[in-house]
Amino acid sequence: MAAATLSEDGEPMMDINTTPLIDVMLVLLIMFIITIPIQSHAVKIDLPQDDGSNTPPPVDPVKNKIVVTQSSDVLWNGAPVNLIQLRQFLDISQQMVPVPELHLQPEPEARYELVDEVLAVTKRAEVQKMGFVGNEAYMNFE
């Protein structure tokens, strides 16, 4: 392919051919981009180490279960708790978004007084979502 070296009036063209310059600049730009090291903005933080004694409260974000046993134990998700710890767990669960469900399951032979105390603790904690589980155990209880 021949390049036009004469203008319309027969004089030589005085414009510079910039195509090779653009090609060289693009190659240099690509080489520059490839050779730049990847910039990573890392923030170095010393995280606390878990020594095993700092266990988070066993509060499930979906549902939690309180069982009152016939031996006068109160179980929170299977772990024995006293009424003060129960109140703390209830307060933590009521601050979660969304609020988890609370299932109360007293055993048929459990003392009514203890079940009543657990209900009073849940009322003071202003539990919003609560249900009774295992009511079928009382159908034939005499």
Rank of each mutant, 00 (worst) to 15 (best):
S7Q: 03
S7T: 08
D9T: 04
D9R: 01
G10V: 00
G10Y: 00
G10L: 00
G10E: 00
P12M: 08
P12Q: 10
M13F: 00
M14Y: 10
M14C: 10
N17L: 12
N17T: 11
N17C: 12
N17W: 06
N17R: 14
N17P: 10
T18D: 14
T18G: 11
T19D: 12
T19Y: 04
T19R: 11
P20Q: 07
L21A: 10
I22A: 09
I22R: 07
V24T: 08
V24L: 13
M25H: 06
L26M: 12
L26K: 13
V27W: 03
V27Q: 12
L29R: 07
L29K: 04
I30T: 13
I30V: 15
I30Y: 04
I30L: 15
F32K: 05
F32M: 14
I33E: 06
I33G: 06
I34Q: 06
I34F: 11
I34W: 08
T35Q: 12
I36A: 12
I36M: 13
P37A: 03
P37M: 02
I38Y: 09
I38N: 10
I38D: 10
Q39F: 12
S40K: 12
S40F: 09
A42R: 15
V43F: 05
P48R: 07
P48Q: 06
Q49W: 03
D50G: 01
D50V: 07
D50C: 02
D50A: 13
D50W: 06
D51S: 09
T55Q: 15
V59W: 02
V59Y: 01
D60C: 07
P61M: 06
P61A: 04
P61S: 04
P61K: 03
V62S: 09
V62Y: 03
V62I: 13
K63C: 04
N64V: 14
I66V: 15
I66Q: 04
T69V: 11
T69I: 14
T69S: 14
Q70V: 09
D73S: 09
D73K: 15
V74P: 07
L75D: 06
L75T: 04
N77Y: 09
N77D: 13
N77L: 03
G78V: 02
A79C: 03
P80L: 05
V81S: 05
V81A: 06
V81H: 06
N82G: 15
L83Y: 03
L83F: 00
L83G: 05
L83K: 05
I84F: 01
Q85C: 02
Q85H: 07
Q85I: 05
L86D: 02
L86P: 09
F89Q: 14
F89N: 15
D91V: 10
D91F: 10
I92T: 03
S93F: 00
S93P: 01
S93M: 15
Q95I: 03
Q95E: 15
M96D: 04
V97Y: 05
P98H: 05
V99Y: 00
V99I: 13
P100E: 10
E101C: 04
E101Y: 03
